[in-house]
């Protein structure tokens, strides 16, 4: 259950962002979480909603998660394609297994909506 640690680390970052922007409140946090990041988005939301309550600055913050699909690029024919899972896709064009992951491992805070 690393999501609680991640949520706690996120709080520290949000405090820093709030301070830098002289915010009185954080109202929304947009995250980008890749399908293969290993972060369970429901658990992260649950953990964040539990820890935010202690902090007036964050207690009304809503977390919005954009799930990023798993996209591979074929190293042989250079076609990009979406994959349902990592086990183990082949290129739909040429059948090659020589692929590189283009997206799907993201674990980012994209933006924060603040009230100043």
């Amino acid at each position: 259950m690393h999501e609680v640690s991640i949520a706690l680390g996120m709080l520290d970052e949000l405090f820093r962002i709030a301070q830098e922007n002289h915010a009185i409140k954080i109202t929304r946090v947009k995250l980008k979480i890749g399908k293969m990041s290993g972060i369970v988005t429901d658990s992260l939301k649950f953990a964040f909603d539990a820890v935010k309550l202690e902090h007036p600055l964050l207690s009304q913050a809503e977390i919005v998660i954009e799930e990023v699909p798993l996209v591979y690029k074929c190293n042989d024919c250079h076609v990009s394609f979406n994959a349902a899972d990592i086990y183990f896709p082949a290129c739909p064009e040429c059948g090659s297994g020589n692929l590189q992951l283009v997206s799907g491992e993201e674990q980012h805070i994209e933006s924060v909506e603040v009230e100043i």
């Binding site: 680390g9 520290d12 972060i39 674990q107 805070i109 994209e110 603040v114 100043i116």
Partner: peptide, 15 residues
Amino acid sequence: HETRTVDVNQSLLKA
């Protein structure tokens, strides 16, 4: 009070 969106684009695990 003004609402403003701050672009962050950094890892969740930055700390």
